[in-house]
Simulated scan of single mutants.
Amino acid sequence: MHPLSVSALQLLRLVAADDLDAALEAGLMAYVPRPGDEALDPHHPDLPQRLLQAQQRLQQAWAARARHQARTARLARRAAEREARRAPPPLPDRRPALPAAAAAILARAQARAGKPSP
């Protein structure tokens, strides 16, 4: 269904049947009360209020889900940071690696000084 392709009365029927997926697809969140909506169904003069309440409940549920997802992500990030702090630091190499040219110069200098190369 295309949003707003159904009437307020059809939206109310979907909400009353607890078919919120279909109500959302039909445009529940875009519903804005219009004059005369309360007279569409004599059994439900509260039609506009019921639809607005359904919108509000869904918005609150979505906000709660977003807060929960943010909390879960925050806790996971904190756990990862805590694990990173607990991990032992990497062991330093015995000697920093020298570029090949510098290593050759050092080897020649040590040879002239009479020291064995490592």
Rank of each mutant, 00 (worst) to 15 (best):
A73D: 13
R57L: 15
G36D: 05
R34T: 12
E25N: 11
A26Q: 10
L98M: 08
P33N: 07
A61Y: 05
L11K: 14
P90A: 12
R65G: 01
A102D: 10
A109H: 02
L58C: 06
A54Y: 03
Q56N: 13
A17I: 04
A84Q: 09
R78V: 07
L28K: 06
R74D: 13
A54H: 02
Q55G: 12
Y31T: 03
G36Q: 04
K115E: 08
Q60N: 12
R78T: 12
A107M: 01
R85A: 09
R94V: 02
E83N: 10
R77Y: 03
R86I: 00
P35K: 04
R50Q: 15
G36T: 09
P89F: 02
P89A: 12
G27Y: 08
L91T: 09
P33W: 09
A8D: 13
S7Y: 12
H2Y: 11
Q10Y: 09
H44A: 15
W62P: 00
Q10K: 15
A63W: 13
A8I: 08
R65A: 15
R112M: 06
A102R: 10
A17L: 07
H44G: 04
A23K: 05
D41M: 11
Q110M: 11
A26V: 13
S7H: 07
L51N: 05
Q10A: 15
A103F: 00
A39V: 11
A23S: 10
A76K: 08
L75A: 09
A76D: 10
I105S: 07
K115A: 06
R74H: 15
A79N: 03
A100G: 02
A101S: 06
P118G: 04
D41T: 14
R77E: 14
A79G: 02
P45N: 06
P88V: 07
P48Q: 13
P92N: 02
S7A: 11
A80D: 07
P99R: 13
A87E: 10
